[in-house]
């Protein structure tokens, strides 16, 4: 049933550091790669080498410019995927029960063999985390790499989501956000981790760490002393010449 569980044993999710993300899109590529070759229907591309390529992605990186009231604007790279919300509106609207939230770890998944591709779950998601695959006609979303994190065939260091494993700047963290002592929870606590669009009431599990405040310094122009005018008013012979030429 698409009733949401009142409580999940774990709250597995991601913590994304907006201070550290460099916007390289490596997580987008590794996500597309892993999720095309493994669990579920592959993430299709249409007109991949043509004029207007369109494709299914579970993770996308936006870049924003933030202009404070004073000082310089700053660029923030902003990866976005499913937030595995506690109060996931995408699950309850599903007419077939294909969408569900797992009791054991809180991951929101789609059972593709039950999905009729009506698209209503994507309508209900405020974050644009779900995309209807145009070839398979089923809804695709981040699985938190459920086929990696419990996969004993993989070396232990690989048992994290592909995006986390690949991030070259360490901007993505994976763990149990339901456990207050976990590394990710500590990180959220220390850095003031935030929810996206909290007014939607979805209670996202994934948290975002805001960019650290920029340091400031007093403006000192080291060249200024060297650039002071040498002589404002000419004197002596040059003074006479200046006046004489003025009169001509």
């Amino acid at each position: 049933m698409t009733d949401l569980p009142t409580h999940t044993e774990k709250k597995l999710g991601l913590v994304i550091d907006l201070d550290t993300c460099v916007g390289c899109h490596a997580c987008v590529v590794s996500c597309k790669g892993w999720n095309t070759e493994n669990y579920g229907a592959p993430l299709s591309d249409m007109d991949a080498y043509g004029a207007e390529p369109v494709g299914t992605f579970l993770n996308r990186v936006h870049s924003y410019e933030v202009q404070p009231e004073q000082g310089f604007a700053q660029t923030v790279h902003f990866p976005k995927s499913c937030l595995h919300c506690e109060d996931a509106p995408c699950v309850t609207v599903c007419p077939t029960g294909a969408s569900y939230k797992r009791l054991e770890d809180g991951i929101v998944l789609v059972n593709e063999s039950d999905c009729i591709g009506c698209g209503l779950c994507a309508w209900a998601c405020p974050y644009g985390a779900r995309e209807l695959d145009q070839v398979e006609g089923v809804m695709k979303k981040c699985t938190l790499c459920v086929d990696r994190i419990y996969n004993n065939n993989l070396p232990e260091e690989d048992r994290v989501p592909a995006c986390v494993r690949t991030c070259p700047s360490g901007a993505r963290h994976f763990g149990d956000l339901g456990d207050p002592d976990s590394e990710v929870s500590q990180l959220v606590e220390a850095r003031g981790g935030m929810d996206l669009m909290p007014e939607q009431g979805t209670k996202p599990v994934n948290k975002y760490l805001p960019p650290r405040p920029k340091d400031t310094w007093e403006e000192v122009d080291i060249l200024a002393p060297l650039l002071t005018p040498v002589a404002a008013e000419p004197k002596g012979f040059l003074g006479w010449l200046d006046k004489a030429l003025e009169k001509l």
């Binding site: 049933m1 698409t2 009733d3 699950v91 309850t92 609207v93 599903c94 007419p95 077939t96 029960g97 294909a98 039950d114 999905c115 009729i116 591709g117 009506c118 698209g119 209503l120 209807l132 695959d133 398979e136 006609g137 089923v138 809804m139």
Partner: peptide, 19 residues
């Protein structure tokens, strides 16, 4: 629908889904 052949499954989730 992306997969209309499974439309009958839409009768199962009346407890939460308006559809």
């Amino acid at each position: 629908l992306g997969n209309p052949q499974r439309a009958m499954k839409a009768f199962t989730q009346w407890r939460t889904s308006w559809l």
